[in-house]
Every structure is written in C-alpha cells, then in structure tokens.
C-alpha cells in the first residue's frame, strides 16, 4: 500500500497529495479527485489536535484535546478517535470504518471496547465540535463525474473548485465543492451541501506546515457549521508512520458481526 503523508491530512480536508505536484489546469477533475483519494492511503497514522469551539456570539470554549489513529487504503479505512482532555471526554472513543465504497459505520465506547460498544451516528459531531466522523473519510472523492467549476482565491492562495455530487438519496451530504490548491495539493476550502443544497459545513485551511516527508499539510483549520459556530482546530502532534497496535480496532471487529446482519449504517 502506498504510504503517504496522510496523517494530518487524514483530516479529510487537509489532504496532501503524495504524487509530485502537477498543474491543476492540466489535470482532469476526475484525476484530481482520484489523486486526492489516493493521497489518503496510509498504513498507519496518528494525529493529536486541540479544538476550540467558538460560538456564534464569539464566546470561546476551553480547548478539547483528542487523538485520531487510523489506516486507509483502496479497500476502505478504519479509524479511532479518543478524547484526551478535559475530563468529560477523557478516554471516550469513537471508532469508524468504511469498507470499499460502502457505508460509513461508527461505534462509541468508554475506556475499552470490551466494556461494551454502542452504535454511533457518523454524522454526529465529535465531542460537541463541528468535526464529523463522516467527513474524515472524505467519501466525496469517490463520487462519479467530478466537475471543475472555476477558480477561487482562499487565504491568498489560488485554487480550483471541484464540484462533486452523488445521486444516492441515502447520503446525508449530496454535494461537495472543494477548492484545491493544485500546486500544494491542499483542499483549501471545502463546502458540504445537503440534498436541498443547503450549506451544512465549511472547512477552511488556515495554516499549513511542511511535514518530515516534505509534504505540505494543514496545521490549523476551521470548520464552520450551519449555525455559524466555528471549531478552530490545531494539530499539535502527528506521526505519519504510525504502527497501529493490535486491538486498536477491536470495537469495529465486534460491531462488524452485527452490521453484517443489519443495516444500521448511514452511507
């Protein structure tokens, strides 16, 4: 499996392409989408982040800390989110997976999967932030027939807008417009729309960093919800070559048996 600097980029929205930079104007939209999808492949990654919630009134919460570890490849992906601080989220876990182009499924548990898991909605905000499990898998990069819809300028950087749509009525998000920096291969701004073309979330990269591998990834980004509440996210630690310990995805293995017999998932 090709290893890329998907770590920090796992964050959907902050993907850096593993392939050498190519001019976006020369690439077909489908090629860009495919490259973005492949850039997320990783044998293992770990990332830790601070998330500060900013209410529409401007009131800021104390930051929450969480970690995400996972694996991604062409056959699907798995990840585990763990709350680190404060106390109320400490060792609360959300595990999620996607097999192939199938639905994204999630479970939640405390301390350890052995203590019991509950089915979780992958569209629910992670620990009351605007971070959403479903977004972390960035399923839109697999949607058919992406289209180029012009260029834009986000935070002083030029990018090309890709519009991706799905006809699946089961999908909570029906359209995504992502403005990709073709040179650095960063989705500088990603807008997610529902079936009624209502803007549900916007993710904007605010600050980037060069990783050990030399690839550019987002260091700070913000997610604005429909209610105008903003989650400011800062990545403070990461490992793009993370060795996922055995048992990390035990909760998913347990839940798989249930999922194989029922349709609890949201595509």
């Amino acid at each position: 499996m090709r290893r890329v600097g998907a770590l920090l980029l796992l964050m959907v929205l902050t993907v850096a392409l593993g392939a050498p930079a190519a001019c976006g104007d020369e690439l077909a939209p489908a090629a860009i989408a495919e490259a973005m999808r492949q850039a997320r492949y990783s044998d293992g990654f770990a990332v830790r982040m601070n998330i500060t919630l900013v209410a529409p009134t401007g009131q800021r919460s104390l930051p929450i800390k969480l970690s995400i570890v996972g694996q991604m490849d062409a056959a699907g992906g798995r990840l585990v989110i763990r709350g680190i601080a404060p106390e109320r989220i400490r060792n609360r876990f959300i595990a999620a997976e996607r097999i192939g182009a199938g639905p994204i499924r999630a479970v939640a548990y405390r301390e350890s999967a052995a203590a019991g898991c509950a089915q979780a909605d992958p569209l629910m905000p992670v620990f009351d932030s605007n971070l959403v499990v479903w977004d972390l898998f960035a399923p839109w990069w697999s949607w058919p027939e992406p289209r180029m819809v012009g260029t834009a300028r986000v935070a002083e950087d030029d990018c090309v807008n890709l519009r991706l749509r799905t006809d699946s009525t089961a999908s909570p998000i029906r359209e995504v417009v992502s403005c990709v920096d073709a040179n650095r291969h960063l989705p500088l701004r990603t807008q997610l729309f529902d079936g009624r073309h209502t803007l549900v979330r916007t993710v904007v990269v605010d600050e980037t960093m060069r990783q050990e591998s030399g690839r550019i990834a987002a260091r700070k980004f913000s997610i604005t919800g429909a209610d105008q509440a903003v989650s400011e996210i800062e990545v403070y630690s990461g490992d793009e070559d993370y060795h996922v310990p055995a048992g990390t995805f035990a909760a998913l293995d347990t839940a798989a048996a249930v999922w194989n017999h029922a349709n609890h998932a949201i595509p």
């Binding site: 050990e212 030399g214 490992d239």
Partner: peptide, 14 residues
C-alpha cells in the same frame, strides 16, 4: 536521527 529532520526536534522514528 532521520535525514530529513528540519524541525526543532526531528520527527519520531522506531
């Protein structure tokens, strides 16, 4: 350490 280390503290390795 790793060759590509450019940060104040190089990235971790096994």
């Amino acid at each position: 350490t790793r060759i590509a280390s450019e940060n104040a503290m190089p990235s971790p390795f096994r």
